[in-house]
Design a binder for these strands. Structure first.
Lengths: 179, 179
DNA sequence: TGTTTATATGTCAATAATGACATAAAGGAG
DNA sequence: CTCCTTTATGTCATTATTGACATATAAACA
């Protein structure tokens, strides 16, 4: 089983979700397209790590809602105990910035501005996500502990927010340099 | 041509390097193994974007040192002008943290501690890299401008340092939560 | 009424990336 | 003298990931 499969199981420990929803919700932690996720869900179902039910919807197309099984949870616990792979980042912008001297300040500045907009939107989305987690939670987020259901989500959105704020700071610092 | 190919060209605008050296130096910006890099260099050579010379070494095995051609630089300028792909991050730790409630505080804390060590080593390496860039540069790093040769390296190592410091802060914050 | 957008699930060919295998030269440790 | 590590280059099978194609429902919009 690959890492994404465990990631899907991981999401399913909190909520039962359709493949489409899993695809949307895993993005902040692991980027993947639906064409990768649907086959993996079929595999997980064959192995007995997840089970699904058909859910008819009146306002939208019907969906298949997956839940994690006890077997799936056992697999997750084994996975957590294993050594964790190092994070992988691939950022085309970094490669471009390395040789940024090939173009003029204006072009460089525009490129950075596009990325800045991207980060700002991302930050906004994380703020909304944090609000949503607060609404779902019974206690203030700062008081959440490992046993609490929202703990994992909360600390990850906090991490993502810290990261995007750092990214924004760098963009602003860069644009100042390019003035 | 894929993004990594442009990345290799990008590195070659600063120094002529062997495939082995390129593999080492591209890691902070784009993780890739030598088995991916060597075939791409052969492709780039066929297209006339790079040229190489055999360099005999007495203390180490001989190597092939690649340089970027004018054609390669043109390709780079075209690439920079194109829309930039969004960054991709894949972090197994994040997926594990999402369902961290499945295990106890001790196990969770150990996992975070391993990652913290990883980040600390990384931070140390970036500090050394920054010193090296300063040594190669004629002016103080803060005064570097886009035209300067070390500008790209400098701003990227600064970015990487900011990132790893944020990651460390999160780790420490997490370990406090898990006490 | 036709068009676009979001939701929803799926397949499959092509590309990207890794891991294993292979070879070799040189230095250092034992 | 042998073993291990680093440097150095390469291939190839497998796996991971993407992008294109395909289909369908329902809402919103013109």
């Amino acid at each position: 089983m690959n890492t994404l499969s465990y990631g899907l199981l991981s999401l399913l420990t909190k909520n039962s979700r359709s493949g489409y929803e899993l695809m949307q919700h895993i993005q902040p932690f692991w980027s993947a397209k639906h064409s990768q996720i649907y086959p993996l869900l079929a595999q997980l179902e064959q192995k007995g790590h997840v089970a699904f039910v058909h859910v008819p919807q009146s306002d939208k197309p019907d969906k298949k809602v997956y839940s994690i099984t006890e077997q799936g949870k056992d697999a997750l616990r084994e996975w957590i105990a294993m050594p964790t792979d190092e994070p992988v980042t691939r950022d085309e912008l970094a490669l471009k910035v390395y040789c940024i001297g090939l173009v003029d300040k204006e072009q460089a500045s525009k490129m950075l501005a596009v990325r800045e907009v991207y980060y700002k939107k991302k930050k906004e989305r994380f703020n909304l996500l944090m609000d949503k987690i607060q609404q779902e939670s019974t206690k203030p987020l700062e008081q959440l502990e490992i046993e609490d259901d929202s703990f994992g989500k909360y600390v990850l959105v906090h991490k993502a927010t810290m990261k995007v704020e750092t990214d924004l700071l760098w963009c602003e610092w860069m644009r100042e340099k390019l003035k």
